[in-house]
């Protein structure tokens, strides 16, 4: 179709190109436009090629291209040889060689850069893969947060244990260091050593004061006990069962702060009730043997209770010692009073 169209145009042009006599072109209308001379020449040559390329069927596109390039090459070679001398041409060849070397270096560097870029791309891929793995793990951890929490708690427990061990160890070190420091201070600082000694003495004084107060208190109680009338004591000892007495003593031992005097007064009040007092007095004055038997029984009972005291005060050496001392006093008094009672009975006889 296109070829036919071109043939029609060429035929028309030939008709009006004086190739067909008598054929003329009459202008009845036209449009105008402007174009540069350069482009006009260019377009004119294109139009010419365009038309005759298809008109001259003998020549293929390939032949046309070869012919054009060959003509161009010959023309350029001719132009080149006329424009430049041999020396200039040699310089141009050297320059061309230099450019080719530069191009080779450039291509080499370009390849290097390409390799490096591939390397970086691989790194980026690895990083992306790692990041994806981390994100995946994070998601799994969120889902299994309870397991993770348990692991965290276990880890925290282990950490706390390590921390406590560390603190303890640190504490030991601190104590040891403090002792060393204190020793060093005592050796190197007389004032400090003096203060330490004073503090130690003050502590001892306070301790001895406390002990003395306790001893005094105990002595006071004994004095108060002695100060009570012998009759009352006799009456109490005779009419009270050793168990009750010992039980009261046990209370004193296990509760050292208890007012022993009040305890004794209470016991006395209980035993001073008229009915029981009267009955017991009758018994005690009727014959001596029951009283002696009763005393002997009381001593035995008290000895048993002493064993009980010792057992119960096994973990309290101070109270135990106080208990023993007090019992010794009481037994001494008891022995003394019993003797008095026997003497009194003997006199009565």
């Amino acid at each position: 179709m296109k070829n036919n169209a071109d043939e029609i145009v060429v035929a028309t042009l030939k008709k009006i190109g004086n190739e067909v006599k008598g054929m003329e072109a009459e202008i009845r209308g036209k449009r105008t436009c402007l174009i540069s001379a350069k482009w006009k020449e260019f377009l004119a040559s294109l139009g010419y090629i365009h038309i005759y390329h298809t008109f001259e069927q003998k020549m293929t596109d390939y032949d046309m291209q070869i012919r054009d390039e060959k003509e161009d090459f010959i023309a350029m070679k001719k132009l080149y040889s006329t424009l430049f001398t041999e020396k200039e041409q040699e310089n141009a060849r050297q320059k061309m060689k230099w450019y080719q070397e530069r191009i080779q270096q450039f291509n080499f560097l370009k390849q290097k850069l390409s390799d490096k870029k591939s390397h970086y791309d691989r790194d980026i891929n690895v990083n992306n893969a790692l990041r994806n793995n981390v994100e995946t793990l994070s998601r799994l951890y969120e889902v299994n947060y309870s397991n993770v929490l348990a692991k965290i708690e276990t880890a925290m427990g282990e950490e706390n244990k390590l921390y406590n061990d560390f603190i303890n160890e640190e504490g030991e070190h601190h104590q040891r260091d403090s002792a060393i420091l204190l020793d060093a201070m005592a050796r190197d600082d007389e004032e400090t050593l003096k203060k330490l000694k004073e503090a130690q003495q003050q502590f001892k004084r306070n301790h001895f004061d406390t002990m003395n107060n306790l001893i005094n208190r105990k002595q006071q109680l004994l004095e108060e006990l002695k100060a009570n009338s012998k009759q009352k004591v006799k009456l109490f000892l005779v009419t009270s069962t050793p168990f009750v007495f010992a039980k009261g003593l046990l209370s004193v031992v296990t509760a050292p702060v208890m007012d022993f005097k009040s305890f004794m007064n209470n016991k006395m009040k209980e035993k001073k009730k008229p009915q029981s007092l009267k009955n017991k007095t009758v018994v005690s004055t009727s014959t001596s043997s029951p009283i002696i038997n009763a005393n002997q029984e009381s001593i035995t009972t008290i000895q048993k209770l002493i064993d009980e005291f010792i057992t119960k005060t096994a973990n309290n050496p101070v109270a135990r010692q106080q208990c023993i001392d007090m019992l010794k006093h009481l037994l001494t008094m008891y022995s003394y009073i019993s003797k008095e009672i026997e003497e009194d009975i003997g006199k009565r006889k």
């Binding site: 008709k15 003329e24 009845r28 174009i35």
Partner: peptide, 17 residues
Amino acid sequence: IILYASAMIESNDKIVF
């Protein structure tokens, strides 16, 4: 350069632009 454009119509024994 001034260019002109026309339609070429063949009529009998002549071409009309």
